[in-house]
Nucleic acid binder design. Sequence first.
DNA 1: CTATTAAATCTAGCAACGCTAGCAAAGATG
DNA 2: CATCTTTGCTAGCGTTGCTAGATTTAATAG
Lengths: 201, 201
Amino acid sequence: MATTPAGGRIAERKQRDKQARRTQIIQAARQVAELEGWPNVTVRRLADEISYSQPVLYAHFENRDAILAAVAVEGFQELGLAMEQARDEAKHGDAVGAVAAAYLEFAANSPALYEVMFSLGLSVPFDSAATPPELRFAFAQFLELFQAQSSRPEVLSELFWASLHGIAELTRTGRFPPQRQQERLQELVGLFKVSEDERCR
Amino acid sequence: MATTPAGGRIAERKQRDKQARRTQIIQAARQVAELEGWPNVTVRRLADEISYSQPVLYAHFENRDAILAAVAVEGFQELGLAMEQARDEAKHGDAVGAVAAAYLEFAANSPALYEVMFSLGLSVPFDSAATPPELRFAFAQFLELFQAQSSRPEVLSELFWASLHGIAELTRTGRFPPQRQQERLQELVGLFKVSEDERCR
DNA sequence: CTATTAAATCTAGCAACGCTAGCAAAGATG
DNA sequence: CATCTTTGCTAGCGTTGCTAGATTTAATAG
């Protein structure tokens, strides 16, 4: 009994196991990074976390950077979803402010995740054909914000994104005192609200 | 002849030599970083560049990060000076636009230098007592920009800085297509000009 | 149930890294 | 010239990312 009748079952199961271990690796990387910083995310450490030897990791990812890139993509997915939700909930209210707040909250709550998405030197391409859909989706949330009101939604979206990224990054690295964050947020939203009205006309 | 009469001369000369070698190390680090990236800036490589053995470097800097931090401080000095000059040259013209352009030009011309100033995980503290004067000076340039016109110059300065930093960083890491940079700059300046007039009143 | 083949996993090791102890050379002082 | 301090180098430790080759485990066939 139980000897498989050669159906694709076992290959299927192996695929599942492989996928499960892949996400296990990514989760371990995230957790260690968030708790102890990215320098502590070594291949040996991750192997230990998932109770396998190091070479197993290289069956899932080409190298260490590929692991970080996978974490980054997951981060972009979550960020995009958070922004979408914020935009939906403030449908006819202050969508710009809601998205901005959601963005900064994401960055503040998962600093290591945010770091790997932007600061670490790995190249998750953006505007090329190889850009992961998670990244496109996240930026699409910005575009939707200014699609209706502005004549040049791309430029305004990029600018809004850049401002939020700058605030997040300078806060994360301790350059901005955190207590004024609310004021910064309000001022920023004010600026881009003005621009929605096409310069006070 | 030439045997020193015990004056502080030789100690003085040694001090000079030491200082010279220190800047030599910093320059080597900058050059290698700009040409081959920060991962190639290893202690062995720097030792080779200045034709000394590795331990000599540790007589000047506590560790590798201290070298990078020194490069970063140099970068802040140059950035601050560039901004000051731009502000002076456009004294009664578009100071905001001039400073913004100077900032982005600096970041674009020295990407590795800009990277070590912000992205690398080393902590050059900002608002604490141990903040290097070069850093204070650079941020002071932003403050001066909005000192007169705005009621809250700190918040507006931080916001302006964050926007520029975001643009610089997203451009450096290939997230922004470089060709729209001019448009982004104009739009940004427009936003902050509006805010100078206290919201179009 | 056993033998054979294929797949998965581990052990062990390489080169390069940051960093340091301990020795050799050079320079300054008597 | 002899002594002593300073300066620099050689060599090596522990850790990193990554990989080849042996080994064990699992799947197939008789």
